[in-house]
Design a protein around this nucleic acid. Structure first.
Lengths: 341, 341
DNA sequence: CTTCAAATGACAACCGATTGCCAAACTTTG
DNA sequence: CAAAGTTTGGCAATCGGTTGTCATTTGAAG
């Protein structure tokens, strides 16, 4: 059965096919498709029609090779299976797609080496990167940022644009909440030693505690996984505190499970506060009081900042810092401090 | 301060830089680095030393353009934020990395159109794809599979290699479990209409129910999200069943929440069975009885099958089908049927 | 009707690798 | 020591676009 289509090709059409079909040079086709006003509108329309007819899709590899722009942005997260990153990834993906970019998502496995080598790799295949919760040193990050446009998430290094989640101030809110419930002996369950977020929260927390005259001790570091919860829970119980503020919800949920196993009631015997309001925080048992923030939006903002760096055309000066608000969401895991004795 | 390094270059080194440094042709460098035995071992060592000294990293775009192989594999999932896919993604990522491939992860947003256009896009930038829970028709999938190597997950189309999770047989186990607890009126909470998994489970379930002489009715379809749980729970209660087998854990967890709001006790008034054993299934309230399977391993197997297609060198014939076992994990959400009346 | 500027489109070099082909160099054998 | 066979390594084309340069066409103005 004959069709109006030219003979079906075994391989994808190129601009040369379009050029042949229209009787123009390949370069004209290239211009018509990328910088439309450099070409006669009628020619352009013919070319566009031919492109549509052939179902032309530009070869991104070739485009990247000759233009130097890849149209891709790398997104580095320490652990894809950490629910905290879902919404972040979703946010970056949506914003990138809206701008016509492709997202290259990489799990750096909580490893500084993997992170560094990934960046090196991406230097050729991405126009820029968004780095969440970097495990690198400030120096290494600065060196990497010098080689390619970068925006960090939850990592504040002078000279590198960043999106920060304001958990430190939420941490103070959490502390006030616990104090208002009568708690005076409180533990901070620390995250990885290389996590700047953890450090910043601890700083904010211990300062606030001093002002308010309560005792906050630091336990850890612990890996940000539910499995760490058992050790953390045991440490908390042993230390004699009546409430814990955990580095994140994963650890907090793990602690809830362990406390339940040990017959320690939450919140009657021990109050728990998590951080991030991840998937699961609202339906664990008891539901977790936690510090929530608009993560998906944070992802979008990070991408916007990066794209502003890549395409400085728009007038507005490039923001180099964006702080996302965080608030305490109180659920069932916090309650009045147990009567002493 | 002078170093032994050649003057630092402002741009990444290429094989030409290496060639110049060693006094050989660029093609010799290319051969030395890719097919080592086509080049004199001493020359090769000189080249390797130079490459190391310059911190040479091959440009993957250029490599792809000239060789036709991209070294990347696309992984398409309908919804990145669905915890079911975390382990799958982790599995594919690990196996791909081990084989020296890069993973291109794409969220197709439960949309057949996005899925189709993504495949078209990937045709140029990936060597093959793993498609999880496709929303496309069999015809569209076959057409796509004809254009590039493909392995599907949880989608059985003759002619396309697939990894299947044996939830149908687990569904029967779940049914037997419920029957042994005295349930006779049971509902299947269906997933998306275009999900073959949902269809396959329903077929297996209704057949098993007929054999065993119990009544199983189908409710839905429901979107595979916790938010759908409310409507599903209401429908289940209204239909008068005493137990539900849900399409997946997300819906089941959403139902648990709704039932709790409505004061319907689980498992005393209603038993719930989920599917997938996702993150959260073990710590929701009550913990969810669910059908579990080695998802991460499924991801690894899918990648292995794909790579076998891409590099047919190894002797063994290519498997075209792999079925992952599934078993019922009983937790607190299932219990004896309520006494009639 | 001529003149000049602006708009347009063709040519060719280039991005950084891969790879077919061939010549030079080497090893082996008679 | 020469002939035949093997390596080895260089040249150049190629992948599919982009982009600088330049010649030509077009239109407007004088």
């Amino acid at each position: 059965m004959a069709t109006t289509q030219p003979a079906a090709m075994d391989r994808p059409p190129t601009i040369h096919d379009i050029a042949a079909l229209c009787g123009v040079a390949a370069s004209t086709v290239s211009r018509a498709l990328s910088s439309p006003d450099r070409v006669n509108i009628r020619t352009r329309q013919r070319i566009e029609a031919a492109a549509a007819q052939l179902h032309y899709i530009p070869n991104s590899q070739a485009k990247a090779l000759s233009s130097g722009r890849t149209g891709a942005v790398g997104v580095l997260v320490p652990d894809i299976t950490n629910p905290f990153y879902f919404d972040l990834i979703r946010g970056t993906q949506l914003q990138l797609k809206a701008a016509g970019y492709t997202q290259l998502l990489v799990d750096t496995e909580e490893s500084d080496e993997v992170e560094a080598s990934t960046m090196e790799q991406l230097r050729k295949s991405a126009d820029g990167i968004v780095v969440a919760a970097s495990r690198l040193t400030d120096e290494a990050l600065l060196a990497a940022a010098a080689k390619m446009p970068m925006v960090t998430m939850n990592r504040d290094v002078p000279g590198i644009p960043a999106v920060l989640i304001d958990t430190p101030s939420a941490t103070s809110q959490a502390l006030d909440h616990l104090i208002s419930l009568g708690h005076t002996r409180i533990a901070y369950i620390a995250g990885p030693a290389t996590s700047q977020s953890s450090t910043r929260r601890w700083t904010a927390l211990s300062e606030a505690a001093k002002e308010r005259g309560v005792e906050v001790r630091r336990l850890g570091p612990f890996a940000p996984k539910t499995q760490s919860g058992a050790a953390a829970a045991d440490a908390a119980v042993h230390s004699g505190v009546t409430a814990c503020i955990a580095f994140n919800d994963l650890i907090a949920i793990g602690m809830l499970q362990r406390l339940r196993e040990r017959g320690i009631r939450v919140p009657q015997d021990m109050s728990m506060v998590g951080c991030d309001d991840i998937f699961g925080a609202d339906f664990c048992n008891p539901p977790l009081t936690t510090m929530a923030s608009p993560i998906e939006q944070a992802g979008r903002v990070a991408v916007s900042m990066l794209l502003a760096q890549l395409n400085p055309l728009a007038g507005g000066g490039t923001r180099s810092r964006s702080v996302m608000p965080t608030h305490l969401t109180v659920r069932g895991s916090t309650g009045p401090a147990p009567a002493p004795g």
